[in-house]
Amino acid sequence: DTLHVTQDGKHIELRGLSEEEIKLVEELLRRGRKVEEALKIIEELRK
């Protein structure tokens, strides 16, 4: 699936995420994380 995010005035499209990963990214962003940080966390969880 694809998640569309706008952060720091930039539109970012995150592709290839599972539904659970999207929920996790959304939660991390709500808690003030940056998109880059959220993606690093997803990458770690995929290992």
Rank of each mutant, 00 (worst) to 15 (best):
R15H: 13
E36Q: 13
K10M: 14
R15Q: 11
T6S: 09
L39E: 03
K40C: 10
T2P: 08
R33M: 14
L39G: 01
L3V: 12
R31L: 11
K23H: 11
G16A: 03
L45W: 13
L3Q: 07
R33I: 14
L3N: 07
D8T: 03
E37T: 07
D1H: 15
E44T: 10
Q7T: 08
E27A: 15
L14E: 04
E13G: 05
L3Y: 02
T6D: 14
R31F: 14
T6G: 06
E20F: 13
E36K: 09
Q7I: 13
L24D: 02
R46Q: 04
R33N: 08
V5R: 01
K23W: 11
G32E: 01
E19L: 14
I41C: 04
G32C: 05
E26I: 15
L24I: 13
L24W: 09
L45E: 05
L3R: 02
E37N: 05
K10A: 12
E19G: 12
E44N: 09
I42A: 01
E26D: 08
Q7Y: 01
T2G: 11
E27Q: 14
H4P: 07
K40G: 09
K23Y: 11
I42K: 00
L29N: 01
E21C: 02
T6M: 14
D1V: 05
E13F: 13
R46P: 01
D1A: 08
E26V: 15
E21G: 01
V5H: 05
E13R: 03
E43S: 08
G16H: 09
H11G: 06
T6K: 03
S18I: 04
L24R: 06
L17D: 00
V5D: 05
V25I: 12
H4C: 06
L17T: 01
T2V: 14
D8P: 04
T6I: 15
R15D: 08
A38I: 15
T2E: 07
I22H: 06
Q7A: 06
E36D: 11
R30A: 09
I41H: 08
E13T: 09
E37D: 11
S18F: 06
E26R: 15
K47M: 15
T2H: 11
L14M: 05
I22D: 02
V35G: 02
T2F: 09
E44G: 08
I12W: 15
R15N: 11
H11K: 08
R33L: 14
L3G: 08
K10R: 06
A38Q: 00
E37L: 07
E20C: 08
Q7N: 07
L3K: 04
K47G: 12
Q7L: 05
K23P: 04
H4T: 12
D1Y: 02
E13V: 13
K34Y: 11
D1M: 09
K40I: 11
E20P: 10
S18H: 06
L14K: 03
G16R: 03
T6L: 14
K34D: 08
E13I: 14
L29F: 09
L14P: 02
G16K: 03
G9P: 03
I12K: 04
L17M: 07
E27S: 14
I42Y: 01
V5I: 10
E13M: 08
V5C: 10
T6C: 10
R33W: 15
L17Q: 00
T6E: 12
V25Y: 05
E43Q: 09
E37I: 08
A38L: 13
K34Q: 08
E27F: 15
Q7F: 01
A38F: 05
K40H: 11
L39W: 11
R30L: 13
E21M: 03
I12A: 04
H11F: 12
D8S: 03
I41Q: 08
Q7E: 15
L39Q: 04
L45I: 12
L45M: 12
G32L: 04
D8G: 07
V35K: 02
E44W: 15
I42L: 09
R15L: 12
L39R: 04
L28V: 06
V25L: 09
E43A: 09
I12P: 06
E19W: 13
L24P: 00
I42F: 02
D8K: 01
G16I: 02
T2N: 09
E43W: 14
V25G: 01
E27R: 14
R46H: 04
E43K: 05
A38G: 02
G32F: 07
T2R: 07
V35P: 06
E36W: 15
E20G: 11
L45N: 08
I42W: 01
E13D: 10
R33Q: 10
H4R: 05
L17A: 03
D8Y: 00
L17E: 00
K10C: 06
S18E: 05
L14W: 03
L39V: 11
E27N: 13
R46W: 04
R31D: 04
T6F: 13
I42T: 01
K34S: 13
Q7D: 08
Q7V: 12
E19M: 13
K23G: 10
R46T: 02
S18C: 07
D1C: 06
K40T: 12
L28G: 01
K34I: 07
